[in-house]
Design a protein around this nucleic acid. Sequence first.
DNA 1: TTACGATGTGAAAGAGATGTGACGATCGGC
DNA 2: GCCGATCGTCACATCTCTTTCACATCGTAA
Lengths: 297, 297
Amino acid sequence: MTEITTPREGAAPSVSGGSSAAMRVAVLDRDSGFIQVLSKRLDRAGWEHRVLASPVAAEAVLSMRLSALVVDLAVLGPQAWEWLERLCGALPELGIVVCTGPSTVAQRVRGLRLGADDWITKPCHPEEVIARVQSVARRRRRTASRSEAAPLVAGEVEVRSDRFQAFVGGASLDLTRREFELIELLAAADGRVLEREEIYSRLWGYTMVRGDRSVDVFVRKLRQKLEKASPRWRYIHTHFGIGYRFAAESLDAERDGGKVPDELPVGWGADAGERDAGDQREIARAQQERELAAKPV
Amino acid sequence: MTEITTPREGAAPSVSGGSSAAMRVAVLDRDSGFIQVLSKRLDRAGWEHRVLASPVAAEAVLSMRLSALVVDLAVLGPQAWEWLERLCGALPELGIVVCTGPSTVAQRVRGLRLGADDWITKPCHPEEVIARVQSVARRRRRTASRSEAAPLVAGEVEVRSDRFQAFVGGASLDLTRREFELIELLAAADGRVLEREEIYSRLWGYTMVRGDRSVDVFVRKLRQKLEKASPRWRYIHTHFGIGYRFAAESLDAERDGGKVPDELPVGWGADAGERDAGDQREIARAQQERELAAKPV
DNA sequence: TTACGATGTGAAAGAGATGTGACGATCGGC
DNA sequence: GCCGATCGTCACATCTCTTTCACATCGTAA
């Protein structure tokens, strides 16, 4: 098992949501000496961090809710450039710091062009790594906060990222942080069904343990507030055995069930609700694969 | 001023990649060899650029509307750190790449902590400089940050940048420097929620450590003075787990909550480039005052 | 239909975050 | 050197949110 997670009991990931105080960093490297030294410094800095020994899928990285990823290209082998490009393309918001052995100017230029945010040459001082990661994260945060300019709208609800809040007819729903993150995630999925596990890992940043009801509870809280503010609409739909789907549906059903033009879930199977057991098994398997990818043995 | 402009009207933005718009870069350096080589490359890349031989004021930099600034700290002499800190504080949106001679880890860390986005050690290849500048600029969104033209008004309060003070009905709130900076920052955000982190880094210039309560304390001080001067209004709203939002809300709630369409500070979007010389001089003076106030010897 | 697991619901408690008052340190002016 | 102003930290009070639990309800498979 090549993974060292550092939850740091007290400094819990509890508040780590969004972009609060704590930094979350993943290090993709196999140089045990370097890892050890860096980990110690990261600990001292109070940053949450995990070490990965092999490349992971973009999706897995996404669910880690990282501030930045430090990577030694040597770990990736000949696939390095391809992997880097793919990751940068998939996660433009993620800060990526390459920290690898001696390289040519051409290599560094290539890496930076592909989307890396910084390139540090080993051997290097861990303090400098931290400073550069911080610099990258600082920049990333500045842009991220403004990029979400366009509010999401569905039915009577408007989700505004710049205010960390959702509105109905101009009135705030008074969502808490988690509630807002949830509605933002669901609304952004725009009609797709999101599995519980995915919701959980995207919001909490780590893998959901069996039996955890947090997602359900927050869905309920959201539903309550939505119902109160916009009684004639239904927004969050349960897909038994799978998860939830966000779509505005009017209850003023004059015709065909009151559904609203709200774009049909393209690609995601006509309707997850119509899935059979086979589907569910398939989903479970996919999830398992994903976790394996995230936690390489 | 020792300045050489190189507009190159028709230059093809061949490599300008990332953003389609042409890049604007300034180089603050005196190493003629380096400048010459770099300029050639910048030309070839189709980037607009200018060379500066001596430090300039933040406002002057602002008016250049740069994507990034490349600077050799050697030019700045012993004032380097101070200058860097001031510039980063004043123009958080500007990409700053330090490109200077041999340095210690501690120096690099310090520079990055103060707000530099990257640090390149000379001698270096111009192509790498370009790649790193591009990487930095990729993360940048808009350079235009401050145009201190119109006073900000919300509810009964008027924030006047030119006087470093806020007023209610013509009476000064007697804000201290930090208090003023805070209310200015909040008011300028105009309704957006600002995270503690962001507030801290914009006001103090460096990253907030976990558990720091400075922001809260100054919010309280501001609230006290606002409350005293304008009791029938609420201005600073807490967003639990996130930060604060500035918006004038009347307590004389006759209707829908007493909210007020708090008038938009017209002219805020006004482009710095469209200002006349008089304005700029005024701004420069104000900035100078601020700097003097900020760094009392 | 029945049994079982998944989901909905309400409440309570604990963990954290924020509000608040006061204190000591620092700095500039006198 | 003394004094006032400002700043940043601390301890304590208060409040909100999160999480967990127990139980009700619902959907699915046997």
